[in-house]
Design a protein around this nucleic acid. Structure first.
Lengths: 189, 189
DNA sequence: ACCTGAACACCGTTCAAGT
DNA sequence: ACCTGAACACCGTTCAAGT
């Protein structure tokens, strides 16, 4: 990449971080370009889709997740590790309004620029879950996708102003449900 | 209301139901007016906000909830009543993509046209919860708002393509958590 | 009283023209 | 190679002008 292009790339990313933190993941791309002082085409050249921009923006955070999960795997009890990891996700998503919906969609869409990051995240969670399950500390009828879904639901709830005041409590309810060693189907469907 | 206006009102509503079922609650109002064959101003005259349109569209469904909840209160066991009510909500919201987010926001905003309906819904749920709690069948540290939040989370999850295949299972996990008579704080915060 | 559609201020996305 | 910004096709919302 040419030096001037590189500079634009980095600057757009820095501005995008500010704007998206302010207005959420649906923030106007025009405003990002405007505030960055570049043409709209320049933004599109570097980030052909909104998801590509977000991917570049969140890559570091996603990498941290993986690192953190590996650390938790050896440093904490299986229960604490799982709970800490869930908390990380909730806290992270709270910085980028609407990112949970995007991640849920990206997980299902291999074409999405965010797909790989979501899969990595799922893998990390799956390992923490498996360890807890092996020690009889977590539901054995649950898989990594289920954990991802519940984490997303938790993150979604925490980001709703309506339920935010009770976020810790609701977190607790769902975390308890995961960490209860319970057989499947408590209620018929 | 004049007869011609009444006709427009009803027709817009009928078309809106189709379009919103197709494209979700963020559907283009322009398209609704276009398909209804009325001017954009006519739509705005009858429904000054998107939420006013949705309120008119969903009023009947919300009323059904109240009726249903009252019936469940006497016809079913406290547990079955609560679970059935939750299922109703999940099924209802699945018809209008994005309505859960709107309801969560409306619950917090007394100015929203959907506010009253959300409160009514919360009240109905609160009663079903109270009955279960009185018989020691549901968490006693939970209130009507918490139930509403968990119902919303469940509805949100069920409407995500990514988690939809496991919707019944995830429903079960959360419903179990509600119906477990458990003391508060299983995990420190 | 009610309806219409142009007008305004925004979008996302593409692409010819410039350097 | 890279950048720019006009152009296009959409929005939501308002409101003067019509019936």
């Amino acid at each position: 990449m040419r030096a001037d292009a590189m500079k634009n790339y980095e600057h757009i990313l820095a501005v995008a971080n500010v704007v998206i933190t302010e207005h959420g993941v649906d923030a106007s791309l025009r405003e990002i370009a405007r505030r960055a002082g570049v043409g709209l085409g320049t933004l599109y050249r570097h980030f052909p889709t909104r998801e590509a921009l977000l991917e570049a923006l969140l890559r570091a955070s996603f990498d941290e997740f993986t690192t953190k999960a590996r650390m938790l795997e050896t440093a904490s009890s299986p229960e604490d590790a799982l709970v800490s990891w869930l908390r990380e996700i909730v806290e992270f998503t709270s910085n980028y309004q609407g990112v949970v919906d995007l991640m849920m969609a990206a997980k299902e869409d291999p074409e999405s620029a965010l797909h790989a990051s979501c899969m990595t995240m799922r893998t990390a969670g799956t390992q923490l879950l498996a360890r807890a399950q092996a020690e009889g500390l977590a539901r054995t009828d649950m898989d990594g996708d289920d954990l991802f879904s519940l984490a997303a639901a938790l993150a979604w709830l925490s980001n709703q102003p309506s339920s935010a005041p009770r976020a810790d409590y609701l977190f607790n309810i769902i975390a308890s449900a995961i960490l209860t060693n319970r057989a499947s189907s408590d209620f018929g469907v």
